[in-house]
Design a binder for these strands. Structure first.
Length: 306
DNA sequence: AAGCTTTCCAACCGCTTTGTA
DNA sequence: TTACAAAGCGGTTGGAAAGCT
C-alpha cells in the first residue's frame, strides 16, 4: 500500500478558494459526461482546470454536487447525528450516509462548531456521551433544585395543586439548570424532582412517561423499545473503538434512530435541547415513596443545605 | 471607527483503504 | 502475493465574517 503521489504537490497547481469560473468549468465537464466523473486524476486537464484532481473531487463532493442540501441542520438531523456519533464515533462519512444531502465535511464541521459545544454546555462529554465529572460540568441547579424540590414535595404530599403553576415553574427551573453552573448532586436532585413532577402531572404530556437523566432529558412512550436502543448503543458500541463497526453498524444505528423517536419533535420544546437516549436510564423513584426511601430524603436534605 | 478576538466552514494534508495488473 | 495508483477519510488549518471592547 504505497503512498499515493499527489498532483497537489506539483508546482503551479492552484490552491485555495474556487472561483465561479472554476466551479462552472467543473460542473459543465461532469454534466457533459452525464455525471460520470471517471478518473479524478485526469479530470483537471480534461476540464481545463489548473487544479489537483483531489481538489476537484472535494469541491464536487462537498459543494457542487446537485443533490447537496444546504442550509441549517434541522433538530431531527441534529438528533440523528448525536445518536449515530454515540455509536460510531468520528466516522463522519458513515454518519453522512444517513443524512440525505449532507456531506461528511459538513457534518464534521457542524459537530465541531455546534453540537460539541452544546453537549459541553449540558455537561456531557462529546466523545463518550457520558456525564462529565462535577468539576467539569456546567450545570447550575442548586438553587433551582431547592425550589423545585420543594414544589415537587409539596405536590406529592398534597399541598399544592398540579396545574399550570407547576408546569411553568418546572420549565423555569429546568431552563436555569440547563443554562448555568453547579454540582452534579444538584443536577440529579433537580432532574429527580422534575421527573416526579412530570410523571405526577398527567396534563403535562398526556399518555407519555417522561424520564430525566443526568445529561439528557428523555421523552419516550415505550420504555422497552428505549432499552433496545440503549443496549445497542452501549453494549455493541464503544465510541472510538471499532467493535461496533464490524457488521453494518451504520445501518443498525440508522434503523434504530429512525425507528425509535428519541426525542420527538413537537412534544416539548425543552426536549429539543437534549439529544438522545445514550446513557443508561436513570428511572427515579416517585416522591410518594418519600417516607420509606432514603433516595429522596437524602436529596431533599442536600438541597436544603445549598 | 478601529483593533482585537472568536466563530465558522471551505479547503487542504497526509494516512488508510480499495482496486487492479 | 505484491506493488502501485486512485479514491476515501478524518484531522487540521487559514481566512473571512461576525462579535466584542
Amino acid at each position: 500500500m504505497g503512498r499515493s503521489p499527489c498532483c497537489c504537490h506539483d508546482a503551479g497547481v492552484k490552491k485555495g478558494p474556487w472561483t465561479e469560473e472554476e466551479d462552472k468549468a467543473l460542473v459543465e465537464h461532469i454534466q457533459k459526461r452525464g455525471g460520470n466523473v471517471g478518473s479524478w486524476r485526469g479530470l483537471p486537464k480534461a476540464a481545463g482546470l489548473n487544479r489537483c484532481g483531489k481538489s476537484c473531487r472535494l469541491r464536487w463532493t462537498n459543494y457542487l454536487r446537485p443533490d447537496i442540501k444546504r442550509g441549517n441542520f434541522s433538530d431531527e438531523e441534529e438528533r440523528l447525528i448525536i445518536t449515530l456519533h454515540a455509536g460510531l464515533g468520528n466516522k463522519w462519512s458513515t454518519i453522512a450516509t444517513h443524512l440525505e444531502g449532507r456531506t461528511d465535511n459538513e457534518i464534521k464541521n457542524y459537530w465541531n462548531t455546534h453540537i460539541r459545544k452544546k453537549l459541553l454546555r449540558m455537561g456531557v462529554d462529546p466523545v463518550t456521551h457520558q456525564q462529565l465529572p462535577p468539576d467539569q460540568t456546567n450545570h447550575d441547579v442548586n438553587g433551582a433544585a431547592a425550589a423545585l424540590l420543594w414544589a415537587a414535595a409539596a405536590v406529592s404530599l398534597g399541598g399544592l395543586d398540579t396545574g399550570a403553576l407547576m408546569q411553568a415553574q418546572l420549565l423555569q427551573q429546568l431552563l436555569q439548570a440547563i443554562g448555568s453552573n453547579n454540582s452534579t448532586t444538584g443536577l440529579i436532585a433537580n432532574l429527580a424532582a422534575a421527573n416526579t413532577v412530570l410523571n405526577s402531572s398527567s396534563s403535562f404530556v398526556p399518555n407519555q412517561m417522561n424520564y430525566l437523566q443526568t445529561g439528557y432529558l428523555c421523552n419516550n412512550s415505550n420504555l422497552s423499545e428505549q432499552h433496545v436502543v440503549q443496549q445497542q448503543l452501549t453494549n455493541d458500541t464503544s465510541p472510538g473503538t471499532s467493535s461496533f463497526a464490524a457488521a453494518e453498524p451504520a445501518d443498525q444505528l440508522c434503523n434504530t434512530a429512525a425507528s425509535y423517536d428519541v426525542a420527538p419533535a413537537g412534544d416539548w420544546s425543552l426536549t429539543q435541547e437534549f439529544g438522545g437516549l445514550l446513557e443508561p436510564m436513570m428511572e427515579l423513584p416517585g416522591l410518594c415513596s418519600l417516607e420509606g426511601d432514603s433516595f429522596w430524603k437524602d436529596i431533599l436534605e442536600d438541597s436544603y443545605r445549598l
